[in-house]
Amino acid sequence: MKARVYVMPKAGVLDPQGKAIGTALEGLGFGGVTDVRAGKVIELDLAETDAAKAKAAAEEMARKLLANTVIESFRVEIA
């Protein structure tokens, strides 16, 4: 079972990378981009076959290691 963990800078936490990407897009002539946030996606292959259990396990992994919940939020998707 595949779990996808989306890790994003928390709302209200400065995201310098997102800001820089936004400025670069503007420089390329893409107008109307009002905000950019940059995070990361971590894909996990899990032996677990129960979707609910897989999700719970991935969330525990996110809390313990994959995300720093002081500065980042996360969301788990089971595929």
Binding site: P9, L14, P16, Q17, A20, V70
Partner: peptide
């Protein structure tokens, strides 16, 4: 220790 250390604001 509390808090977090983000990428430098200047990148």
């Amino acid at each position: 220790l509390p808090g977090g250390l983000l990428r430098n604001a200047s990148l």
